[in-house]
Amino acid sequence: MGTFALAVILLIITPGPGVLTTAGFGAAYGFKPSLKYVLGLFIGTNLVLLAVITGVAAVVLSVPWLRTLLLIASIGYLLYLAARIAFAGSKIAFMEAKQPPGVFGGVALQAINPKAYVVNTSLISGFSYAPDNLTFEIITKVIIMNAIWIPIHLAWLWAGTVLHELNLSHAAQRAINIGMALAMLAVVGLAAWTATT
């Protein structure tokens, strides 16, 4: 179980769309306004987890055209979120985001987040520690994953919020937002490259 918990920490803490948008929205809007989005991510990641456990994810992703459609939707939505972060509070932006996406935005991201499926599939199908009692293993894995997921995402939100609360100049805040958005774009590029290789 210890090896599994360590794997959860390492897989969840690494930058992906969920943690990057969490930190980005924390930096752009602050802690409390971004909590609804994090709640949506939490609901979404557990829906993905349920889809992985029940095999629905494997069936859906085994259809090539549907997998491609989901990848395109994922990339499009991640680009949209990157723009929301980059242009939050920017008067020169083509879109000025007054507030972060709410619960639905978080759920939607996780539903099309390639990392969510990869991480959940790896953790559920690997790291077996109770092969004689699969029900116990899956239930404890879900509990451990959620017990680690929550503080990690709140820590990323807090880290972004610290930047928000520094009362940086408008130009510095915009530079941070753009940096967060560029990190998101790097994740988008990596997801697209991985899917085509």
Results as ranks from 00 to 15, higher is better:
A192W: 05
A155K: 01
I139N: 03
A57R: 14
A171M: 07
P101K: 12
A108G: 00
V142T: 14
V162M: 10
I138E: 07
I152V: 15
N167G: 14
F94E: 14
L41K: 08
I9D: 03
I176Q: 10
F127V: 07
S34E: 05
L78N: 06
A159R: 03
A82D: 09
V107D: 01
I9H: 04
G44F: 03
G102L: 13
A130H: 06
T22E: 02
E96T: 15
G106R: 06
Y117C: 03
T194W: 00
S62A: 15
V188N: 01
G89C: 10
I143N: 05
A86K: 12
A155M: 12
A28D: 11
A57F: 12
L6T: 02
G126E: 03
P15K: 06
F136R: 08
L109W: 04
K91V: 15
A191D: 11
E165C: 08
G30D: 10
L78H: 13
H153I: 01
V187F: 04
E137D: 06
L182E: 00
T197H: 12
A93I: 13
G189K: 01
T140G: 00
A58G: 10
V162F: 09
S74F: 06
T21A: 14
L168W: 14
N133H: 11
N120M: 15
I148E: 02
P114L: 03
A27N: 13
A116E: 07
L6K: 02
F136E: 12
K36W: 06
L154K: 03
L79R: 02
L47E: 05
W65Y: 11
I75R: 00
A108L: 15
A88E: 06
S74H: 08
L50A: 15
L81S: 13
T45D: 12
